[in-house]
Computed example of a mutant assay.
Amino acid sequence: MNGIVHDFGATVRRLREAHAWSQERLAEHAGLNRTYIGEIERGTAIASIVTVEKLAFAFGVGVAELLAGSALIVSGERARAAGGLRP
């Protein structure tokens, strides 16, 4: 897969881990299948815009923020440290 797909998957994984969620828990919050979450995280599946929206909603961020990737990770980790992100 190309770089953007891999980077998006890495962002999803980092956000999931920042929330201390398993893939199964993220799947429940997003209304997706756990195996599909794993494929997204590994960069072997290309998420549709509908899936991106579901993931963004589950994480409590905007679609643009989720697609921004590494900038969101840094701010998300800071917010979590300050108690701002929901577990």
Results as ranks from 00 to 15, higher is better:
residue 1 M to S: 15
residue 1 M to W: 11
residue 1 M to P: 12
residue 1 M to G: 15
residue 1 M to Y: 13
residue 3 G to P: 04
residue 3 G to Y: 07
residue 4 I to V: 15
residue 4 I to N: 14
residue 4 I to C: 06
residue 4 I to H: 14
residue 5 V to Q: 15
residue 6 H to Y: 14
residue 7 D to H: 13
residue 8 F to G: 02
residue 8 F to A: 01
residue 9 G to V: 01
residue 10 A to K: 14
residue 10 A to D: 09
residue 11 T to C: 04
residue 11 T to R: 00
residue 11 T to S: 06
residue 11 T to I: 01
residue 12 V to Q: 08
residue 12 V to S: 07
residue 14 R to P: 01
residue 14 R to S: 13
residue 15 L to C: 09
residue 19 H to R: 15
residue 19 H to K: 15
residue 19 H to D: 02
residue 21 W to Y: 10
residue 23 Q to L: 02
residue 23 Q to H: 11
residue 26 L to E: 02
residue 27 A to D: 02
residue 28 E to T: 10
residue 28 E to M: 08
residue 29 H to E: 15
residue 29 H to F: 13
residue 29 H to L: 13
residue 30 A to T: 05
residue 34 R to Y: 04
residue 34 R to V: 06
residue 35 T to F: 13
residue 36 Y to P: 06
residue 37 I to M: 06
residue 39 E to V: 00
residue 39 E to M: 01
residue 40 I to P: 02
residue 41 E to N: 09
residue 42 R to T: 04
residue 42 R to C: 03
residue 42 R to K: 13
residue 43 G to A: 10
residue 45 A to T: 10
residue 46 I to H: 09
residue 47 A to S: 13
residue 47 A to V: 08
residue 48 S to C: 01
residue 49 I to L: 11
residue 49 I to T: 08
residue 50 V to R: 03
residue 52 V to L: 06
residue 52 V to P: 03
residue 52 V to G: 02
residue 52 V to C: 07
residue 54 K to D: 11
residue 55 L to C: 12
residue 55 L to Y: 07
residue 55 L to H: 10
residue 56 A to D: 09
residue 57 F to E: 10
residue 57 F to W: 03
residue 57 F to C: 01
residue 57 F to R: 14
residue 58 A to L: 06
residue 58 A to F: 04
residue 60 G to H: 06
residue 60 G to V: 07
residue 61 V to K: 02
residue 61 V to C: 05
residue 62 G to M: 01
residue 66 L to T: 12
residue 66 L to C: 12
residue 66 L to H: 10
residue 67 L to F: 10
residue 67 L to K: 09
residue 67 L to W: 08
residue 68 A to I: 06
residue 68 A to T: 12
residue 68 A to E: 15
residue 68 A to F: 10
residue 69 G to I: 05
residue 70 S to A: 15
residue 70 S to F: 12
residue 71 A to F: 10
residue 72 L to G: 07
residue 72 L to P: 03
residue 74 V to H: 08
residue 75 S to M: 14
residue 76 G to D: 04
residue 76 G to S: 13
residue 77 E to W: 11
residue 78 R to F: 08
residue 78 R to Y: 04
residue 79 A to L: 14
residue 79 A to D: 11
residue 80 R to P: 02
residue 80 R to W: 03
residue 80 R to A: 11
residue 81 A to I: 00
residue 82 A to T: 00
residue 82 A to E: 08
residue 82 A to L: 08
residue 85 L to W: 09
residue 85 L to P: 02
residue 85 L to Q: 03
residue 86 R to M: 09
residue 86 R to V: 10
residue 87 P to I: 00
